[in-house]
Design a protein around this nucleic acid. Structure first.
Lengths: 200, 200
DNA sequence: TATACTATTGTACGATCGTTCAATAGTAAT
DNA sequence: ATTACTATTGAACGATCGTACAATAGTATA
């Protein structure tokens, strides 16, 4: 057996550390936010983390961006594939809001940790702003196709309303200790959409 | 000048420590969650905390309950006083959702810390459940008066929808770094209510 | 006044934290 | 083969963490 080298190009190692960070946060929440635990999860020494990331906040911000971009891209792909079936983008958006392939209670618990860090750290706050703005732009793009009579300000308000509702339902879902079956939360979101479409 | 004794009855000291905890979380978020910082905020020695609270989680859970009960009671008082003006409870509920006397971005940032702790600690998770259930019961009571044609399940779904939307808007508001003026978030909530009332 | 009780203090312990850094191992260029 | 570079390691540092505990101060009871 030839022992392969453990060396990785910088970018690959960074990605691996980011994935390890997400895994730790999903497993243990705030207490998973530990450089040592993250390195252990990645099977890597402690010093390596500081070789690839200047400090812990940079790693955390990168992980925040990664999980956000991943969700964003998965969502785009899903909506694009459903568009062929003549389903309005906003219908697909709502339909897969609690889809296990796109989002899980574990991931949402990691998201809550990111939120709590956005309170403390300016870097995380800035990343939060970027992520929010990015997603809001996409939401407006989607909503405008089903709400053609709304102007820009109204669309923006509706986008904020949708993301707030989705975030709140996700929060309730992921912190709920009784029932992890997403159906009831899903139904609430669908009824919201039906009501909103009817009144537009 | 006679120096008064610093002694306090157990319950008073507990309340003081709870208030100090809330102050620390509102100021510094997660990093404010430190026994030493809390004691410093209360102007009290470190050992005293463990005399009045078995451990940090107990104090944190008590603080979570305090901020929740306080909001709940303030809300009840506001709704009761507006009822004399022939305003429906749900109208008042929505009208003061971003009232500075009832809620502030600072308090919401403390709330996010509680959420993040509910991931880790079973004690905090249990308190979260209790608080949620308590508030949901109250919401149903309020909503039933403006939505008399909904059955129990529909009312419960609507209560979850409202609290999710409010939580999400609060989150967006308190983490938003550009604009702390609550008016636009308030308007979104009001439009949601108008739409929902119209379709019921 | 003596006794029992409780609030309060200050210190100390062991653990964990993020970060630094010198030393080593692997890789690519000369 | 030598040089230059970079990934990787592991140990160390100072700080902070939650908790425990013995000692002290204040209060009420007898």
């Amino acid at each position: 057996m030839k022992k392969k080298s453990d060396r990785l190009p910088s970018e690959d190692r960074r990605k691996q550390l980011i994935e390890a960070t997400l895994a730790c946060l999903m497993q243990d929440g705030t207490s998973g936010l530990s450089s040592r635990k993250i390195c252990a999860q990645a099977g890597v020494s402690l010093g390596l983390l500081n070789h690839h990331f200047a400090n812990q906040v940079d790693l955390l911000a990168a992980a925040y961006e990664t999980i956000s971009v991943r969700y964003h891209q998965d969502l785009r792909a899903r909506i694009a594939s459903n568009k062929d079936n003549h389903s309005a983008p906003v219908e697909t958006l709502v339909a897969c809001a609690f889809d296990a392939d796109l989002i899980s209670p574990d991931q949402l618990r990691a998201w809550i940790v990111f939120w709590s860090q956005a309170i403390d750290s300016p870097v995380m706050r800035a990343m939060h702003d970027t992520i929010n703005e990015r997603f809001q732009t996409y939401l407006i793009e989607i909503l405008s196709q089903s709400f053609p009579r709304l102007d820009a300000d109204q669309l923006r308000a509706l986008a904020i309303e949708y993301s707030a509702l989705a975030d709140g339902l996700w929060l309730d879902w992921s912190l709920n200790s009784k029932n992890q079956d997403a159906r009831s939360w899903q139904a609430i979101l669908e009824q919201w959409l039906a009501r909103t479409l009817a009144s537009a």
